[in-house]
Amino acid sequence: MSAQQNTKPDHVKLIKKLVFTVVFMFGFGFALVPLYDVFCDITGLNGKTSNSAASQSQVVDVDRLVTVEFIAHTQGRLPWTFEPEIKRIKVHPGEHHEVNF
C-alpha cells in the first residue's frame, strides 16, 4: 500500500502534463488557421488558387475516342420519367456535343 501512496504525486504531475498537452493541442488546432497562411507567405507556396482564368484547349484530339454514358433517375416514386435520349455517345476529346434529357 505504501508503494501506491508514493506513486500518487507522480500521477498528479503526469496527469497535469498530459492535460496541458490536450489543451495545447486543442489550441493548436485553432492556431493552424493563421499558421497555414503564415506558412504559405514564408515559403511562397500558395495553396489558394490564383484568380486567372484557365485557358481551354480548342484542339480536338481525333486520335482518341472516348465513350461517355449517361444515366438519370428521379427521386423516389415521383410520377415522372426523366431519361437521357441517348444512353451512350462516342466523342473525341475536345469536341462539343449536346445531349438532351
Partner: peptide
C-alpha cells in the same frame, strides 16, 4: 492526446 483535441477543434 495529440490529435483528438484537433478533431474537437
Amino acid at each position: 492526446i495529440a490529435v483528438m483535441p484537433v478533431l474537437a477543434g
